[in-house]
Amino acid sequence: MRYDPANPEWPERDRLVLSKGHSAPALYAVAALSGMFAVQQLKGFRKLGHSLQGHPHVGATPWVETSTGSLGQGFSAALGMALGLRHQGNLARVFVLLGDGELQEGELWEAMLCGAHFNLGKLCAILDYNKLQSDDYLAKVLAVEPLADKIRSFGWHLQEIDGHDPSAIQTALETADRCDTPSFIIAHTLKGKGVGFMEGRPEWHGSVKLSDADLSQALTDLGASPSEIDGYLNGHWSN
């Protein structure tokens, strides 16, 4: 992505919309480490009087491209951005990160029709396909398969990748950039990847209730330590 942390409103920047707004912590962590704001601010996440809202909000953090948190809407908003940019001859790309449960929203399929109809070649959707949603496994709640066939039939360029493989992600994004049509990347993922007791388990979808022992185990699994995390949050991050 092309962006400038010192100038978040640079008109030529690529846009990233986190349509699965409940993943705000991941967005905030990446943004902080990318220089969009001071890492210490992460300590204010979800707290009164701090800017990092529970779901991304452009009114509180202007570097966020739009407010999300109601599934389906971020996809439409990203589509609107891609249309607005093309209207002005701006060649910036628009990336939108979708959740898989989000595929159950009717609005998402309205946007799929629309993205193909307007042939928005600069629009790239990436699906975090971890097969879990709030209540249970996607296949039990409301099945979305056969997914790849659906996406293709809507007229989008489709790629399927291992969502945990950085080089595969890189290649897929480059391939998408060469497409004239809107592009959809199904990134197969494992929810809770890297933390043994969380991997693939629905009960951790929306839970942040970690005991000290769980936290310690999770950090060990991830190859980190509590003191290291405290160090990052206190601004002693070194790359």
Binding site: T66, G80, L85
Partner: peptide
């Protein structure tokens, strides 16, 4: 936008974000 008002209105928000 066709008969798809939810997409139209959210897309209007995104379009306006580009300055028009």
């Amino acid at each position: 936008f066709g008969i798809a008002e939810q997409n139209m209105v959210a897309a209007a928000g995104g379009f306006a974000a580009t300055g028009i």
